[in-house]
Structures are given as C-alpha cells and as structure tokens.
Design a protein around this nucleic acid. Structure first.
Lengths: 118, 118
DNA sequence: AAATGATATGCGATGAATAGAATATGCTGT
DNA sequence: ACAGCATATTCTATTCATCGCATATCATTT
C-alpha cells in the first residue's frame, strides 16, 4: 500500500465517507448504501477497490457482507484516517453521516435493512 | 483548499517529488526540471496546478521563476507534507532527489542553470 | 529591436477513472 | 429445487486528467 495508491483512494468523496463511517465499526453494504444514498453497484465497486488496497476487509454474515477497516499498519493511512473527522469542507457531511447511522441503528431495531453489528 | 483537492494533488508521483524538494526551500523551475528529469511543459503545468490550489507560490527573479511552499494553514496538508520524507515506497526516490539537489548546488557554483536560493 | 533563454498557455489527442445497465453468484427460507 | 434478497462482476459508454506539440510571454543580452 504505497503512498500514491492511498492518496488516489482518498481523493474520492464517497470513499472518504465510507472510511469515515467504518471508523465507527464494521458495517454491512446495505447500511452503507442507505446512509450514502448510493446505488448497489457503485458501493460494491468502491468496497472492492478499497479491499484491493488492503484498507478494508469483508466478511460474510449470512446473506450480508460486513466490511471493516483492516488493522492498517501503514502510518500514512492511519494518520489520514485520524484526520477524517475534522477534514476541511467535509466535516458537516461526515458528521451527518454518523448521525444518520445512529438514527438508523436505533430506529430500525427490528425490521428491514437491519444489520446488527457483529 | 478542501481535502479532496489536496488528495487529488498528492496522488501524483511527480507532484509529491516537487513538494518534497520544495520543503528544503524555494527552487526555480529549471532546477526542478533537472532534478526530476522532467520536460518544461509538464513542470510548468504541475506548478500551475499546485499554485491554483494555493500550495505553492511563484516569484519572478529576473528570467527565472522561483517557487516555494506557501505558509500552508491547512492542517491536513501540513500533516501530509510532514510525512513525505518517510512515505512508503517513495522514501528512496525522495532522498535521492534531495541528494541530487545538494550535488547540483555545490557543483555548479557558477555557471549555467544555477539558481541561487534567494 | 532582434536574438536568446526561461517559463507559461492553448489545444487536440490519448489514456485512466468512473458510471450504468445487464447479469452472475451466494445465502436463506419454503 | 425454487424464489427472493444481498452482493459481486463484466462490459460498454462517458467523463476527466494527462500528454505533446505549437506557440506565446517576459526578461536579458547584444
């Protein structure tokens, strides 16, 4: 995972949002899709992309795939992930994403699209 | 200077090398070209690009243009510039660039292509 | 003011990243 | 074995960045 690949990955808004969300714990694809209002294909591709870099890893839970950040060793990545929360120009979006995640988690205690954190 | 623009800028090898070199002080275009073995047009465009982002600024010195890092306030940028030296996969190149800069500075005390640091 | 060296800009061509539709795979419940 | 949802993959179309060439600008020297 060299620097340039990391930067290439980080220069996409949606990927940043995904990483930001994953920082709060593993999440399934459907939840990510819902929060980011993204279509299935795109989300899947983004995750594949980041998986290819070794930034995230996926684990199957029944019919769902749950993604998490890998225990990244790379200091450059670690540093930048830390910065995410108070990143200029995106702070608002990131915070809202997290709020939405909270809301969804509490609200849909039972039914559809619920992916309880493993 | 938002996060994504910064990352977009940093995900180019040549731009990283330029930034790395500029960290050691202002440099003229011809020196940058020489060290990075880059052609004039490309170098000029890269500098313009980074100038557009407010990362570098240029000042005319007679027929030369001397570029320097701006006093970047942006914490994300500052952080990443700091990391540059020991960035995975590029360490070697960066170090060699700096060495070459040293060598050129010492060697060509007088004539051509010398741009003394203002 | 013409010639020369340093740097910048504009534009068409090329290539890389992203988007979108169609389809495939994998798991679950019946 | 089939139906239905969740996720992944493939292929083409489009968009965006980069490249190369030609040319422009600006300062210096003659």
């Amino acid at each position: 995972m060299d620097a340039i690949s990391i930067y290439k990955c980080l220069c996409d808004r949606q990927r940043l949002r995904i990483l930001n969300l994953l920082r709060s714990g593993p999440l399934c694809v459907c939840l990510l899709m819902e929060i980011l209002e993204a279509d299935q294909v795109k989300m899947s591709k983004q995750l594949r992309y980041m998986k290819g870099l070794g930034m995230v890893e996926g684990e199957r839970r029944a019919q769902w795939m749950v993604y998490r950040l890998t225990d990244a060793e790379n200091p450059l990545l670690v540093e930048n992930l830390k910065c995410l929360q108070d990143v200029a120009g995106e702070r608002r979006v990131f915070r809202d994403d997290l709020k939405r995640l909270e809301r969804i988690r509490k609200h849909s205690a039972a039914p559809p699209r619920t992916c309880e954190k493993p």
